[in-house]
């Protein structure tokens, strides 16, 4: 499973990056590929390319604020959650992502 996503919080200094680390760790544990872009005070890092997004099975947007380039995810299955959820329950979020993809495939 291939996941892309964006993390962004209000101040853009702490939750964004903690959420990124939590999700990366959880994806690694579950054996999924993950590429997360961060949009914070220091700007955009680890930016997703259109190819990254086109190749992904699902997008996880862990965001508390409006993000730049939201339209990039128009054509992909996505889950949008607050950064708090990504920090609190990253493993559950991975399970949920797997379920969503499975449901879509069965539909």
């Amino acid at each position: 499973m291939k996941i892309v996503g964006v993390c962004a919080c209000t101040v853009g200094i702490a939750h964004t990056y903690i959420a990124q680390e939590k999700l990366e760790k959880a994806a690694e544990k579950a054996g999924y590929d993950i590429h997360l872009e961060t949009q914070g005070t220091i700007g955009t890092q680890n930016e997703l390319t259109p190819e990254d997004i086109a190749d992904a099975d699902i997008a996880i947007l862990a965001i508390d604020v409006k993000i730049k380039g939201m339209e990039r995810f128009d054509k992909i299955t996505k889950m949008t959650v607050p950064t708090d959820i990504a920090i609190k329950s990253p493993n559950k979020l991975m399970e949920k992502a797997a379920q969503v993809i499975k449901q879509r495939q069965n539909a």
């Binding site: 702490a14 964004t16 990056y17 961060t38 220091i42």
Partner: peptide, 25 residues
């Protein structure tokens, strides 16, 4: 975390704070 109001001239420090925050995950 203490963050300056302006990012001007503080980019390096802010980047460092974000890398530090990542470790808390």
């Amino acid at each position: 975390f203490a963050v300056t109001d302006s990012t001007e001239g503080a980019q390096d420090h802010l980047k460092m704070l974000s890398e530090f925050a990542k470790k808390l995950g």
